[in-house]
Amino acid sequence: MDDSKIIDLYFMRDEQAITLTAKKYGQKLNSISFGILGDRMMAEECENDTYLKAWNAIPPAEPRAHFFAFLAKITRRLSISRIRDGSRQKRSAVLVELSSELELCLPCEGTVEQTVDQKLLMQSISVFIKKLPSEQRIIFVRRYWYLESIDQIAKKLGIGESKVKSILSGGRKKLKEHLEKEGFAV
């Protein structure tokens, strides 16, 4: 069914909307959550929580153009929260590893001004990623948004791990330069 029709059902408060959402995107959302949490049961819980959050958010939210991205964002947020709750110590190490990769190219020292400018920083990162070549862009998003391991990315995209590593390294270098140009202290 078309995303727009599913959104209409949300607006009409028809519970069929959740069934149809699960049918269309359930597997993908579960896969995102499992990639972050590494636990089948928790991933399922996060998937179900996503439907509830979506039910509560629509309306007023009306994500007709990018319904999947809207749901995926909720799933990602919920999954990361689960890790931060402390229930998944091993997975927490994965998040720290990912962040340590980014430390060299993102502003880390938290000043009040920078905290205020966080929104701007996020927008700037988004703009930077959009400008990257297709291959680099996809790998960057898979690594830092979907939080996939280098091994997983290499397998999914059919390329070598070393290539993935070098693309990510090059991307981080470019990101640092981009943010410095934009006036962020890296």
Binding site: P63, F68, A69, R142, W145, Y146
Partner: peptide, 8 residues
Amino acid sequence: EELIEEAA
């Protein structure tokens, strides 16, 4: 959102 969907 476009980037998220493209990568997916």
